[in-house]
Nucleic acid binder design. Sequence first.
DNA 1: CTGTTCTACGAACACCGTTCTACAACCGAA
DNA 2: TTCGGTTGTAGAACGGTGTTCGTAGAACAG
Lengths: 254, 254
Amino acid sequence: MANAASNSHETPGTPATPALPVPPWERTRRAKTPARTPLSQEAIVEAALHILETEGYDGLSMRRVASELGTGAASLYAHVANKDELMKLVIDRVFDSVEFPEPDPERWVEQVREMMRGTRRILQAHPGIARAMLGQVPFGPSGLRIVEGFMAILRAGELPDQVAAWAGDVVSLYVVASVFEDDIRFAPHGDTSREDMEAWAGQMKSYIKSLPVTTFPNLVALADPMFETGGPDGRFEFGLDLMLRGLASHSRRA
Amino acid sequence: MANAASNSHETPGTPATPALPVPPWERTRRAKTPARTPLSQEAIVEAALHILETEGYDGLSMRRVASELGTGAASLYAHVANKDELMKLVIDRVFDSVEFPEPDPERWVEQVREMMRGTRRILQAHPGIARAMLGQVPFGPSGLRIVEGFMAILRAGELPDQVAAWAGDVVSLYVVASVFEDDIRFAPHGDTSREDMEAWAGQMKSYIKSLPVTTFPNLVALADPMFETGGPDGRFEFGLDLMLRGLASHSRRA
DNA sequence: CTGTTCTACGAACACCGTTCTACAACCGAA
DNA sequence: TTCGGTTGTAGAACGGTGTTCGTAGAACAG
């Protein structure tokens, strides 16, 4: 993941003595422009992704990316139009690692389920990506690859074209929104430790239970299952299952 | 929706002539310290909501709210802890207008559908609210009222408690995310005119169709239904229906 | 060797949320 | 009526943001 800039094209015009130790009288000059990685778009995306992983969505700024690369913010704009475009590139970069299976008509529902689980896991591994992804049509190179794979599975399930087309959009919207919600709910809260989550759920639960029963009978009655997370993935799995049941009812199979 | 500030508690010390027209000789004094609305929390929320409606999510800043009220940003912090709290208040303010029916066990699915449609309409009428709402537990006074009403309907549908509890969360997440996506996709784009939407869909469609058929067979085949909006609400209705079908399959009724 | 062209990047612009601090207006007690 | 004390107001400032401007320098073409 790191160390991706040592080989490949040197700038064509440099004389053939790049490996020599830097002479002492040039030390100061060299030190001024450090590292000598000529600042490519790929390097910028990589740096942005690294910051996103380590410092979260709010930690990512153009200045922060620049400082990671040992330069100033203005320099980035030679390789990237603006922060929005950088985000799109980062998103597509993350999509590289999303995998999907060969469509199997017998198992299409399970295949969709697993694909969505995998997508969720990857989004969770890169906090903040989900936030940037909402409202973006994922039509970068990797995005297209994924949508194609998704559609293949849905069509293997013999869904009508209109259903398959909309389902791709709607189900992935659910996945992204779901991660985003968790993200934003616990990200400012510091680390997303399980304890914090449990504590938060406990607070909410007891608050609901303290409400007047006469005006909020159902709310009070459901306080427990509402914050019974059922493991951290219970709610997500439930919603996914809801959509898959609905989807299955559209299938022309069996 | 407006006109909600005329009655209720005056400041306790004022004399009993508040309804009299302002005498002419006081006009100038009145004009100097403008409007003489002593900057209440309610006024701040109202101003914020107004800005959100007219200038969108990005147009809303503390300074902007303050200038709307003819004051400086610092003054707001006497009535509101920070922007986050202001947002929560605005959200709950919007929730005031969400309506829901008396639960009818025979029609519970349709009731949920209509309630979600109504919620969507209200969120769409206040662009930016959806953006602020994601990741917030809607437990302000109005929020609680709505969740209670929602839960009442779900329980009328004889759903298991765990299902009802999760469904409330998951379905509203879908509604909010759905509005948010439209919002963010077309808000920077200027006005959300139907023409712009159609034009955008047309562009996307022809881009997809221009892809190599051998590597993206399904994508190319589904390009038409993918951007066949089926009216602007087609996709939303489809996703909602997906969840409702899944939900109905959990019901202990019939 | 001389333009010309492209990249780098410090400085600056116009914002943002928030806090500090001085100031004015009110209010109850003397 | 005067005197503290409390409270709401608001200008200035702090430390951030994305982005643009203009200059300095290196690399390439003629």
